[in-house]
């Protein structure tokens, strides 16, 4: 106990990081914390609006299509998207791990698969948005209201506004993640991190990528499950 206390005192005296991480990684953590509040604010305002409405569309009725299949399949397509993103998170951890062992080829392999996963996810999202927009759902209008005399009626306008804003903001994060991962992959292939002596850059983009996955876990629950 006393050893821990004395080590901590030494740590706060300067010269070493009391957090035992580099400046860059610590700043990435702080950035992600602020980003968590941004997404948190979005999702909580969505929740507030939804709770204040007397009627809200059932996600099982809204998200019931998958490409190439002409049947009602609630949640199937979005489950695939979730699987792709979890999988790309796994390949990212494997890339970070290979970076610790300074195995350049393995880092490149796992990072490439992560980028592929990101692109696949964005393609799925593009399909989903296209399908919804073609069905008449926009940020100000949708037809997911209660069925009156066998006819669909307009649903709450906020539904489309929140859906496109939040999934769009998340998709924007995925897109920038893909771009940053690609830049890091180019540097891996060029041997930049071998010359630098460490693969910490892969860890930093890894943190960002896992955060994007984390946000999707909450978006998935709030929009597709609840």
């Amino acid at each position: 106990m006393s050893t821990i206390a004395s080590t901590q005192k030494v740590n706060w005296k300067g010269g070493v990081s009391p957090y035992n991480v580099s400046y860059g990684k610590l700043m990435m953590w702080f950035f992600l914390m602020s980003d968590a509040f941004t997404f948190g604010a979005f999702l909580i305002s969505y929740g507030t609006t939804r709770l204040s409405a007397s009627y809200w569309p059932d996600p099982n009725e809204v998200f019931d299509k998958a490409p190439f299949i002409n049947a009602k399949l609630p949640l199937v397509f979005v489950s695939l998207m979730t699987f792709i993103l979890i999988m790309s998170s796994v390949t990212m951890v494997l890339a970070v791990h290979a970076g610790h062992l300074r195995r350049r080829k393995e880092v490149a392999k796992w990072l490439s698969l992560t980028i592929l996963g990101g692109i696949l996810f964005l393609s799925c999202q593009a399909y989903e948005w296209t399908h919804l927009i073609e069905g008449g759902t926009t940020i100000s209008h949708n037809m997911f209201g209660p069925i009156v005399d066998g006819h669909h009626t307009p649903g709450p306008a906020a539904f489309g506004a929140f859906f496109f804003t939040i999934t769009g903001f998340h998709g924007g994060h995925v897109f920038s993640g893909v771009v940053i991962n690609t830049i890091v992959l180019i540097n891996v292939l060029k041997g930049t991190y071998d010359r630098r002596g460490h693969y910490e850059m892969v860890e930093k983009v890894g943190l960002y990528w896992h955060f994007v996955d984390l946000v999707w876990v909450f978006v998935f629950t709030c929009f597709y499950l609840l």
């Binding site: 740590n11 009391p18 957090y19 035992n20 998170s89 951890v93 890894g206 896992h210 996955d213 984390l214």
Partner: peptide, 14 residues
């Protein structure tokens, strides 16, 4: 995700 993938569980308490 946070504890294992982002490795937070294995960082220092601070």
């Amino acid at each position: 995700i946070v504890a294992e993938f982002m490795h937070l569980r294995h960082e220092v308490k601070n």
